[in-house]
Amino acid sequence: MTMNQDPQPPSNLKIHCDNASSLVQSYMDSELTEAQAAPLREHFLDCPACRELAKDGRVLRRWFDGAPGESGILAPEGFASRVARRAFAGDPGLLIPEPRRPLLPFLLTITAVAAAALFVFSVVIQRQAIPTSGTMSAEDYSPPWEDRSAGDRWAIDEGPPPAYVVPTELPPLIEVDDPQADPEDPKPDSE
């Protein structure tokens, strides 16, 4: 039997040491009925261990019996009338705690909000830094906050950067001078 169970057994239950320990305390505190105490007393006759337990209880009781209330601590003169007067005057009492702002929940909330904001910020930054193309590229990639636009720098300091223009027409062929050719005579068509 555990301590939290009702220690008071039916009167016809034979008591064993397993459940006697909690019963002994109730017996010593006069919390058992006679019908409940009788089988325990019978058990004491046969069980030295439980008898010893009861004896320990009696010894312990003597320490409390020998320590009477301190007669020096009594209510001071006029205490009752003073307190009754204050109560009827609506005194809220000295020790009633004032409503305090719960600091810990506030700090926890602030911390949680800050952590969430930091997390969202980091995710946004990370998403901006990731290339949106699905193809693999060997090109160097610089995050957007790095100044990779030389054009801006040129625009500020030295004017527009040298533009690279993709040629749309082939450059003219370089003609090699033929000393036997008549410049006035066009080439005959091949027939």
Binding site: A75, P76, F79, V83, A84, R86, A87, D91, P92, G93, L94, L95, I96
Partner: peptide, 10 residues
């Protein structure tokens, strides 16, 4: 005394 007084006021 404070505790007992507060007890009765409560």
């Amino acid at each position: 005394e404070d505790i007992v007084q507060d007890t009765f006021i409560k």
